[in-house]
Computed example of a mutant assay.
Amino acid sequence: MKIDVIIPVYKPEKRFLELISRLEKQTLKPNRIIIMNTEEKYFEALLYGTDFAREHPNAEVHHLSKWEFNHGGTRNDGAARSTGDIFVCMTQDALPADNRLLEELTAALSAEEDIAVSYARQLPEKDSGEIEKYTRQFNYPEESCVKGKGQLPEMGIKTYFCSNVCAAYKKEVFRKLGGFERHVNFNEDMLFAAKAVQAGWKIAYCAGAKVYHCHNYTCAEQFHRNFDNGVSQAQHPEVFKGLPSESEGVKLVKQTAAHLCSIHKPWLVLRLFAESAAKYAGFFLGRRYKSLPAGVVRACAMNKDYWKQV
């Protein structure tokens, strides 16, 4: 099977070049690396003095304006350029943990006919804080699993959980199901996963496929990010209605607090509560964005450009 990798890029740093290098060293090598770059000037600044095209002949770069970028639409455009049987979506700040990432990630798609999507385990960085480390462990455990309609009563909203930080898609299934929601500010991966599950397909979590990826967000950034999440859920009641996310959030906070106490760092519980309050406030307002003035919505959003397109 031919595999292409699609990476939306904005203001890339040296870590992005390391990602390209690690992809090229995989045991299962990508056929093409399709880079969907927002604003050419930032990409050119990173590559100044290098010959990127010669050094990475299987990488192709497509530039777009900031106005044109969209979480779902830009990835759809990348998928349309793919000639592979499978394409892998990645973000510019994810790094393969080893050279078997693509092999492990796509194995489930090759072995099981009814699996439409597989996604990788996200590992914290060495310098990640304790809260971020535990959050990664909570959301990305050591055990792999396959999720479908049969898991909805038990797993609820986590049945649809998927992450385009590193996820592989069967291109033909992706095409038949209509691809990602084109105009979306968040959750394009979960929305597609939900559509696939409802159509009878399954989602595979592949713990053996590992990437380093984490964010040490401030409380303000947590607020803005979760506001966008709340907006996305409010805009898609056909997916999220009846499958509340709050219970999973409460479970995460309780388990993280217990973990922090068990490792004798109870003072971090205060930070956990502050971050959790910011997350919930953002999510609460995002779910009710239609009742807010337009200026308040833009002020609360992380992806402010999205609202210029609405």
Rank of each mutant, 00 (worst) to 15 (best):
S163E: 10
S163I: 11
V165A: 04
C166L: 05
C166V: 00
A167S: 14
A167W: 11
A168L: 11
A168P: 07
A168R: 05
K171T: 15
E172L: 04
F174T: 15
R175H: 10
K176D: 15
K176P: 07
K176R: 14
L177V: 11
G178H: 06
G178L: 01
F180Y: 13
F180R: 00
F180K: 02
N185H: 10
F186C: 11
F186I: 02
N187C: 02
M190Q: 09
L191H: 01
F192T: 04
F192I: 04
A193S: 05
A193G: 02
V197A: 07
V197T: 12
A199P: 07
A199K: 13
A199I: 06
W201Y: 07
K202T: 13
I203T: 04
Y205P: 00
A207I: 12
A207V: 09
K210T: 01
V211Y: 06
V211H: 01
V211D: 03
H213N: 10
C214M: 09
H215V: 08
H215E: 12
T218C: 14
E221V: 14
Q222W: 15
Q222P: 10
F223L: 15
F223D: 11
F223N: 10
H224T: 12
D228E: 03
D228H: 00
V231P: 01
V231M: 06
S232L: 01
S232E: 03
S232R: 03
Q233Y: 08
Q233R: 10
H236G: 07
H236C: 05
